[in-house]
Every structure is written in C-alpha cells, then in structure tokens.
Design a protein around this nucleic acid. Structure first.
Lengths: 210, 210
DNA sequence: TGTTCATGTTACTGACCGGTACGTTGCGGA
DNA sequence: TCCGCAACGTACCGGTCAGTAACATGAACA
C-alpha cells in the first residue's frame, strides 16, 4: 500500500573498499529503521515485517545480523544509551567542576526537547515499561542505564556539598524521569518545560542546612 | 495450566431481581482479570484469549460487553482512575486546609507502594506509553487524568502561597511521575522512596522569596 | 577460471492476533 | 406447555506474529 520510501538514510556508511571491512549495509539500514519505529511507536507495536519493508530488505537479512527481535531491540537501546551519555557528558564537560550548572545544562536541554510535538520520552524507560519481565534483553539495558545514572547523580549531589546527597540525587532522577514521561503525555506546554527550574530549586533547598 | 482462580471479586454486584437490572457476571469477571493482567503485564502483551481463559468465559462473552479490546482497556483504565482519585482525595481530606500535608500524605503512600516488589507504576501512564497514538481510547483516559491532576496540583501550590504556583505544581507532578516510573525500574531500594521528602524540600524552596 | 563465502532472495511454517456467525442453554412469564 | 429472550459456548475467519529452509548473486582470491 505505502510506496517504498527511501527516506531512511544511514548516517554513517562504511566506505566501500576500504580496509577490507565490508560492513553489511543491510544490518545498518535495519538498525536505523528499527530505531525510528521502535522509538516512535514502541517495540511491541512494530513487527519485524514492517521493519524489513521500510529498510528495503527481507527477514533473513535481519535474522543473520540479529538473533531475534528482542536482540534487535536491545541493540537499538544500546545505541540509544551511547547517545544518551554523549548528551549527558556534553553538559558535564561544558561546566567543569560545577555540578549544579552541569545538571542545569542537561535538564534545560531535556526540558526543551520534552515539550516538542511527537516527543516520545526516553527509549530505555519506555522499553522497560513495555517489558516488565525481569531479564528481558531490552529491559536490562534500561535497568543498567538507570542504575548508572542514579550513581552519577548522587555523586554530583555529593560534589555540590549536599547534606543528604543520596536523597538529592534521587530527587533529580525523579524529576528527570518525570520530564521524560510528562513530555510525551502533555506535549507542548507540558510540565516538563520546568524541569530545570524545579531541579535548581530542589538543589537550593537541599544545600542549605535544614 | 493455571488453576481457575476466583480471586477476581466483583466489588459491587447488582443485586439480582432488583430494578430489572441484570448485570452479566461474565463482564465483571472479564474486567477483573483484564485489570490484573493489563496492569501487571501491559495491555499489548495480553491477548483477549488469555483474558477469557483466565476468566473462565469465551470470547463472544467479552465482545458482547466490550466493543473491542481497546474499549476493554479503556474501561479498565476508567476504573483505575476512579480508585486513583479515591486515594488522592483520601490524602486531601485527611489534612483539611493544609495542602502541603496533603501532598506529603499522598506522596508518602505513593513512595511506599512504589518500592514494593513487582510494583508496576501508574496504569494510566503505562498505557499512554504503550499507545502513543493520539486519540487512542486507552491513551485518552490517561491524558485526561493527567491534565486534571496537573490542574489540582497547581491549585494546591497556589493555596500554599507559592510565588510561582504553576512551576511548583508542575514540579510536584514531575516528582510523582518520576516515582511511578522509577518504582518499577528500580524496585525495592529505588529512588521513589524519597519522593515525599524531595517534594517537601521543593515546596520549601518554592515558598520562600527567591 | 574455479572456489569460497557473505549477502541477497522467495516462499514457507505454526502459533497467535482481534473479531464474528451461528447454534445452545436456561429461565420468567403467558 | 410453550414462547421469547438474554446469556453463553462452538467453531471459525483472515491477517499478522516471529522465525526459518533453501536457493541466488556477486565479489575476493587462488
């Protein structure tokens, strides 16, 4: 029914004929399409047929590179996580030695993205909600990411000199997750726009002796 | 496989022989089973066959009471929302005229539930994440609920005398949603345990002139 | 030129998806 | 006793699910 669109461009194509490395084009195109569809529609909502159709390949090509749909989803999430930490570290390195500004910079950007139309939140959080079963490959990526994120936020809270650094770090994590979820629930004009401001107020309250 | 459980009690049974209203038993059993399964496993993850099997009925019985699976899911969520407001209003009426204590009471209970094993967050939030498509019956229930919740939280923030009541109300909503999500991601010992404490600090910071 | 091997294809599987046509049962009232 | 009717079950629909067997192609290398 739908015409075959070639809009799914691969961002970085392995240059053919170099270093003898012949990265399969199919796997990258599949991953790119899966990333778009999984993020926008959800993992359970998208079948492998839809993915291979939009990628312009066929199912055996998918299953040669990924052992299962679950593994494809996990790969999508691992890539997603890499980019997440890139954004996070970008905010960190923009304000060396100033964790409060680091948090503010990161959350300002999150808050901005979260009120865009068709914002769909955090792919890892969404996947964990879609797959409540412990041990599911897709869920594990999210669980591990959130544990590490919690560790870093608590460390940053301690670096700020907060009395109860763990509580502050957890509060920042709650605000962040709330922004992810509320962003896709409310859309433009939603409460996620104020995540950075609220985080800063929470930091203020947590820094002064109570 | 599973033995036929009769745990799905109907909360309010239409007394037979009264007013000619004969509520079918099948519909209530279906709704009870659907509620359990949809909440614990997710809506997309559960097929109607599984529901009717556990309810001990057959599919036509389901489709006589519910026009579609989506409508069954929406009914489950509407019931879920009723109980949500019951819990919310319970915290409110426990501290008349004291919105700060109302918030603390509500969030204390949420924080406690959110760190239980197998906690699965807010059914409405989860459904909205499972169904990103605008206009989906299941999603609409959640969207409407969150809008009303936001309105009430902002009103309570104003009642507290916050300078920027809308920002504080939104901050409380972010913390709440974050507790829902983090609760099911981290399980026991997760950051959701501190949602009430963080909310109280945020209120403190928002009440004093900046 | 012939071999090898990764990447591509067509065509298929059994299970499950949501949903339905149609027959059966049981009960209250005439 | 029989009717009418609502509640329920049997058996089935086409479509889609994830996953696979078997074969074609094309380039690198001997």
């Amino acid at each position: 029914m739908a015409t075959k669109t070639s809009t799914t461009q691969l961002t970085e194509t392995a240059k053919p004929g170099e270093a003898g490395q012949h990265q399969p084009r199919a796997a990258e195109r599949i991953l790119g399409v899966a990333r778009n569809l999984f993020y926008r529609e959800g993992i359970r909502a998208i079948g492998v047929d839809e993915i291979v159709r939009q990628a312009g390949v066929t199912k055996p090509s998918l299953y040669r590179s990924f052992s299962s749909k679950d593994e494809l989803a996990a790969t999508y999430l691992r890539n997603y996580e890499v980019e997440f930490w890139e954004r996070f570290d970008q905010a960190v390195s923009a304000h060396p030695g100033d964790p409060r500004s680091q948090i503010r910079a990161f959350l300002t950007r999150v808050g901005h993205r979260a009120v865009q139309t068709d914002y769909r939140g955090c792919g890892m959080t969404n996947a964990a909600i879609e797959y409540p079963e412990h041990g599911h490959p897709a869920r594990q990526v999210g669980e591990e990411n959130k544990r590490e994120l919690r560790r870093r936020l608590r460390a940053m809270a301690a670096e700020m000199g907060a009395e109860d650094a763990d509580t502050l770090g957890d509060g920042l994590l709650l605000l962040l997750e709330g922004a992810y979820v509320s962003g896709q629930l409310f859309g433009p004009g939603g409460p996620a726009a104020s995540v950075a401001e609220n985080a800063d107020r929470l930091i203020s309250a947590s820094l002064k002796a109570r």
